[in-house]
Design a protein around this nucleic acid. Structure first.
Lengths: 186, 186
DNA sequence: ATTTTTGTGGAGTGATTAGTCAATCTTTAA
DNA sequence: TTAAAGATTGACTAATCACTCCACAAAAAT
């Protein structure tokens, strides 16, 4: 019954299907089962809604990646756990993932404050820096490492979504693609 | 004086800055220095213009990658030449490259005919298949290889654009990133 | 020379859009 | 119990948009 969340969910579906400007706010409100006024009560402008949706989704991904840490895990194990959970998150939430991709390569990205981006990436950045200090990862700039891994993930995801392989084969590809990227960065 | 090309160039600039639906056709015509009617004389709809622009740019990239082949080149040398020229094309044509990225992760992608996509990728796909048959590349599906390389390229590009390293360092990173992807796929 | 085709301009149009507003309903707080 | 604050509605508006239409100019074909 949380209208705010219903608005975000409706917006997500429509944005991915019709693009940002291709979906009118009126349709978002309709799809969410709320009035036009309610939408603008929560989000002053359409731009604000788009950015809020991005932050909402990014927070969910970040939370998912950060969770599940176990004591005494090696750096490699932590890395793999995060890699694999990112991969499965993207596979299980294809619309959310597509949205983030769409958002990233759109002019909206520049509307996200620098602090918000830092907040979302700090956990991973810190972890990678530690892994470099521990002489596990190659001493590359952390943002280069981050970009390499992100784009690798996006690439594998694109392939897995396009070519409908069975679950077993999928698992195999994910494991293999982890080995590939691991060899690349260590 | 080619009005058609001026329209495409104006559209490109505006689409990248303001997004697809964020740029009105009237502004494209204005920026191109032609009338509204002329724009719709060449492109029946805005969607048709967007897709035409994509094909226009893709054709340029494909031509650039395919050119420069020398006799007696090893497979690795051919691969590296194509990798490096893609990389530099993206760096020298950042707006065109951003457009293709934006297009790829947008609902417009599905408006491109399957044949057109095949036409654009066949050259590379065939080359990769040959490289697999020659036991140089790992026997992975060619579209997985393609996706892996494309996303790797996009990732490196993103990094190079964001962190303004000098030309020498840039060259070093490009060479290094080729080695990384080469090790990954062979 | 004359017809036909193609290119070009720009005012015009109907539909659509983001965003407003004043009126009601609901919840919270005193 | 009552007052204030927040939530919700949907009709409304001013602006904007994709696209049309028709007049005319240039070029090509006859």
């Amino acid at each position: 019954m949380d209208k705010q969340e219903q608005i975000l969910k409706a917006a997500l579906r429509l944005f991915v299907e019709f693009g940002f400007h291709g979906t009118p706010t009126s349709k978002i409100a309709q799809e969410a089962g709320v009035s036009n006024g309610t939408l603008f009560h929560y989000y002053k402008t359409k731009d604000e809604l788009v950015v809020a949706l991005y932050v909402y989704i990014k927070t969910k991904i970040t939370g998912c990646i950060a969770s599940g840490k176990e004591e005494g895990e090696t750096i490699k194990a932590t890395f793999k756990r995060m890699f694999v959970s990112s991969m499965y998150w993207a596979l299980e939430n294809p619309i959310e993932f597509r949205f983030t991709q769409q958002f990233h390569s759109s002019p909206y990205l520049s509307m996200v404050s620098h602090e918000e981006i830092l907040k979302q990436t700090r956990y991973l950045m810190d972890f990678m820096q530690e892994a470099i200090d521990a002489r596990v990862l190659k001493p590359l700039p952390t943002d280069l490492l981050f970009t390499l891994i992100s784009s690798h993930l996006a690439g594998i995801n694109e392939y897995l979504v396009a070519s409908k392989v069975d679950n077993e084969k999928q698992k195999e590809i994910i494991n293999h693609s982890f080995d590939l990227i691991w060899d690349m960065i260590t």
